[in-house]
């Protein structure tokens, strides 16, 4: 028996038509992501990587092609059908956090679980667990606006994980963070990945991408590379002596 992939995209195309000429953003992309895989998507701006990931989460409609999530055909769903599927299966993290400003941190994290049909007690327990994991339990009663960017992104990640999603999608999750906050978000991503979380993430940050099992490179709306990131042959001393070089 073969394992059902978490994602199977077949010949995915997106053409924008705003007034004038049609502009192809994604031009026939095939991608299979197995359970537990961490895939980084890279490429220059305008290469279609954000559009691609948004289509995978149903946040943009596709022009043609198929999207299968966890074995179910998803591209033919209505907007409300997608909303239900997302609640059950997909967590999303954006560059600009997108937290609900007039709700507390705790409510932001509990909301998707409640919408997904969890009991209030379950939603609260999950929220307490996630915020504790992220070192944010003391911020539960705060409004998002009172938090630093790094803290808000960690809350966004907690919210995305609230429903135990089959798939975590992220679009430049560290694009707006400084180096220390990037490190905190990275630690978390590494941790959930080790626990078996399937992740597909768009990034131009090499530190983020280097955590992935596999890197997919897009150029002009097409995949030009899709391969694992190899482990370096370790030197006995285990130092990075030939990476860091001091002159003088």
């Amino acid at each position: 028996m073969t394992v059902t992939p978490v994602i199977r995209a077949v010949g995915l195309v997106k053409i924008y038509q705003t007034g004038g000429l049609p502009v192809p953003a994604v031009r026939g992309v095939d991608l299979v992501v197995e359970p537990g895989e961490f895939v980084a998507i890279m490429g220059p701006s305008g290469s279609g990587k954000s559009t691609f990931v948004h289509m995978l989460g149903g946040l943009e409609t596709r022009t043609s092609g198929e999207i299968w999530l966890d074995g179910k055909r998803a591209d033919t769903l209505s907007e409300s059908g997608w909303a239900v599927l997302r609640r059950q299966k997909v967590g999303f993290v954006f560059q600009f956090f997108n937290l609900v400003a007039n709700m507390t941190v705790a409510d932001n994290v509990e909301l998707p679980a409640l919408l997904g049909g969890a009991t209030p007690r379950h939603a609260r327990e999950r929220r307490e667990y996630l915020l504790a994991e992220l070192g944010l339990e003391e911020r539960a009663g705060a409004a998002p606006g009172q938090l630093s960017g790094g803290e808000q992104q960690r809350v966004a990640l907690a919210r995305a994980l609230a429903n135990h999603p089959r798939l975590l999608l992220a679009d430049e999750p560290t694009g707006n963070l400084d180096s220390r906050n990037t490190r905190d978000v990275l630690k978390l991503l590494g941790k959930v990945h080790r626990q078996g979380q399937t992740i597909v993430l768009v990034t131009h940050d090499a530190r983020v991408a280097s955590m992935a099992d596999r890197v997919v490179s897009l150029l002009d709306g097409q995949i030009v590379d899709d391969a694992p990131i190899a482990r370096l042959q370790r030197r006995p001393a285990g130092t990075a002596g030939d990476i860091v070089e001091l002159h003088g």
Binding site: R207, A209, V224, A227, I229, L232, A240, I243
Partner: peptide
């Protein structure tokens, strides 16, 4: 060139992973 660039990108990412682990240690 496409193949060269792609291979080099993955190599840089391996180096980055190595640096990250070095930073941890």
């Amino acid at each position: 060139r496409m193949a060269l660039v792609n291979r080099q990108r993955r190599h840089y990412l391996s180096l980055m992973r190595d640096l990250d682990e070095l930073a941890e240690r």
